[in-house]
Design a protein around this nucleic acid. Structure first.
Lengths: 199, 199
DNA sequence: GTATAACACATACATGATGTATGTGTGATC
DNA sequence: GATCACACATACATCATGTATGTGTTATAC
């Protein structure tokens, strides 16, 4: 396989990486709205020309950073579920735990949960989030609730997702986040059992 | 009681109302970011001077509109719960139903749920939302779950709130919103029963 | 009744962010 | 070695916001 890159390709890759890196840092630390495209590219040693060339502006760069996080999150959650063994319930719990842990990390929390809807607008945020995590969630739910659930799957997925993200945000503000995380896992499990049990 | 207003007070009230009205309409129809302060005040027959004088800018006006909706919502939910009688469970169901109905209305949906976090920033949005609806939710939950719940109340409140808002947004996109609303109420009830039942 | 003070709102200007159109130099291709 | 293409820089036009200041009308004091 030809893995050698021309000098030019190396340059391109380097500036792309520089933009992504400084974008990630600045957006995380100060938020999408409070960092101007100009100071961002200056921190990267570039100009806005490069930014528009590669990402079509500040929002495009943000979306690229956003998708990096979402992609990683999806992979990590899938890995955690796979590592939990064959029992669907264990897998679901593992997935919830992994998701809550990821949400507690400053990068994901800031970029995806807090800044995401603001920077991308709510519809696009929802579309992307659904693309990266939606399948994971629905698969886990069907595994736990069966193929003929008492409540419609799309509604259940929405409710569970909303509960989990709000839990994640609350946990981050808790006095003892680790303990709160465990309590949240228990709570989520109780909710899921309720959905499975009651009609 | 002296209810007579001086001519000047009438003028002030009228311009305030004009700003609130056109703000509500424009923000609802086109979103906070896509309407400039200038065209907003022109539509109201005023200038940005008036806007800054009364609301300290576009964001201040938005917040005022936002709080109108939240205040009304809180009152309507409280009324629906009161009308449901003395049984805590019935009251909770009535509250959920009222909340989902309100979320389905274009004004509340657009201003509070969709534009709110974007326009106000997430922390302030959460603070205000908590102020108007938080007490209502926690009261209903304690009534249903008892004073010694199996799961921490703040976490439960967060999870339920997240589930309900996501449900509300999903319902609005459903093919048959009325049916989806009823299904969502059932789903929320099942979740609450799960929280009450399982540990 | 007139002078004066206060306030509601308008006007004017300074600043900064964004999008676009165009220029330019360097590396690739023949 | 000439030319082409592309990655990126530069320059400019536009627009939104915040602020500082002006002005007219209303209320108040005498």
């Amino acid at each position: 396989m030809e893995n050698v890159k021309s000098r030019r390709e190396q340059y391109v890759e380097s500036t792309r990486a520089a933009l992504l890196d400084t974008g990630r840092r600045h957006f995380t630390e100060r938020g999408f709205a409070d960092v101007s495209a100009e100071e961002l590219v200056r921190a990267a040693g570039l100009t806005r020309g490069a930014l528009y060339h590669h990402f079509d502006g500040k929002q495009g760069l943000f979306q690229a950073v956003f998708e990096e996080y979402e992609d990683q999150a999806a992979q990590r959650i899938a890995a955690a579920m796979a590592a939990a063994g064959g029992d669907p319930w264990q897998r679901a719990i593992a997935g919830v735990r992994a998701f809550l842990d990821i949400c507690a990390e400053p990068g994901y929390r800031q970029i995806v949960l807090l800044q995401g809807p603001i920077a991308l607008g709510w519809p696009r945020w929802r579309e992307l989030d659904q693309r990266y995590l939606g399948a994971l969630l629905e698969d886990g739910l069907t595994a736990v609730l069966g193929t003929a659930p008492a409540h419609p799957l799309p509604l259940t997925a929405a409710a569970v997702y909303g509960a989990l993200t709000e839990l994640a945000l609350t946990i981050a503000d808790a006095a003892d986040p680790a303990q709160a995380r465990d309590q949240a896992v228990q709570l989520a499990a109780a909710m899921l059992k309720g959905v499975r049990t009651f009609h």
